[in-house]
Amino acid sequence: MRDDAHHILRLAARAMGRHGLAHAYGHVSQRVDAGHFLVTPPRPLPTVSVEDEGTLVPLDGPLPDGVLGEVRLHREIYRKREDVGGICRVQPPAVMALSALGMTPRALHGFGTYFAPMPPLWPETALVREDAVAVQVADMLGEATAIVLRGNGAVVTGRTLETAAANTFFLEDAARIELALLPARAAGLGALEYSAEEAAARATAAGGIYERMWDYLCFGDVEWKEAA
């Protein structure tokens, strides 16, 4: 296993905690080859230490001992989506609040366009700790970038783990905008939602969008100087 894979895993884990996207629960992972992915240890993401290493999980077969039950969500998504190289299972507060209203954020500003027209909402409230349910969640995710789990946070994907971490920040910011506009919506005022064409043009990776967000997410981390 490459040392840099564990390094990126640790950076992403702590970034989720540093920016309020995960607390005592959650996990992040990255694909390492065609048949395996690396997932964070079963501890709060903000507490992942510089000595910690991830656990290698096979795409075929049962989860290894000690791996958290919802890691099966990662496994099913990697099985179905060859384009996905990283996943964040998190609890962003604005995303959680919207899910309690049966809503997910629309494409109302730049960051929201990465999920246009909006992420799907998994309606069940139980934690996903059964293989069959994990398959259903992955099926509902489809080709979307993220899926919101009602009252349980979200699962966010990316081409790499760095991209997935950036998408997680984008998702929470989109939910923040949606929440801020709820009073206006209640007053009968309509938001200027991006058209499909506008969203496709805005949801770009050009210009170092993801690289700069990764720098922002990791800035100040004890291991960040090694990667800078």
Score class of each variant (00 low, 15 high):
residue 137 V to P: 01
residue 166 A to P: 06
residue 149 L to D: 00
residue 51 E to W: 08
residue 54 G to S: 10
residue 25 Y to F: 13
residue 128 V to D: 05
residue 208 G to W: 14
residue 39 V to F: 11
residue 137 V to A: 09
residue 33 D to M: 12
residue 51 E to C: 12
residue 100 A to G: 14
residue 177 I to C: 13
residue 145 T to N: 08
residue 110 G to K: 06
residue 228 A to Q: 15
residue 175 A to L: 04
residue 144 A to I: 14
residue 220 G to K: 06
residue 191 A to K: 09
residue 187 A to N: 08
residue 64 P to M: 11
residue 155 V to M: 01
residue 46 P to G: 07
residue 85 G to R: 00
residue 166 A to F: 05
residue 79 R to T: 04
residue 203 A to W: 03
residue 73 L to V: 05
residue 61 G to P: 01
residue 164 A to W: 04
residue 183 P to S: 08
residue 66 G to Y: 08
residue 41 P to G: 13
residue 70 E to S: 04
residue 71 V to R: 03
residue 55 T to S: 08
residue 3 D to T: 12
residue 30 Q to N: 05
residue 154 A to I: 06
residue 27 H to Q: 06
residue 157 T to Y: 09
residue 2 R to W: 13
residue 108 L to H: 04
residue 49 S to M: 13
residue 35 G to E: 11
residue 90 V to Q: 07
residue 37 F to K: 04
residue 111 F to R: 02
residue 209 I to Q: 10
residue 4 D to K: 15
residue 204 T to G: 07
residue 26 G to F: 00
residue 3 D to N: 15
residue 135 V to T: 11
residue 12 A to L: 13
residue 190 G to E: 15
residue 81 R to K: 05
residue 56 L to N: 09
residue 197 E to S: 01
residue 113 T to N: 02
residue 94 A to C: 12
residue 74 H to I: 04
residue 70 E to G: 02
residue 36 H to K: 05
residue 9 L to E: 09
residue 48 V to H: 02
residue 103 M to A: 13
residue 164 A to N: 07
residue 3 D to L: 14
residue 53 E to H: 15
residue 134 A to E: 05
residue 141 L to E: 01
residue 54 G to C: 05
residue 2 R to S: 15
residue 71 V to D: 00
residue 227 A to S: 14
residue 99 S to V: 03
residue 88 C to N: 10
residue 62 P to Y: 05
residue 104 T to R: 00
residue 10 R to V: 14
residue 88 C to T: 05
residue 157 T to R: 02
residue 138 A to Q: 08
residue 20 G to I: 09
residue 161 L to M: 12
residue 155 V to Y: 02
residue 139 D to Y: 13
residue 180 A to L: 10
residue 138 A to C: 08
residue 179 L to G: 05
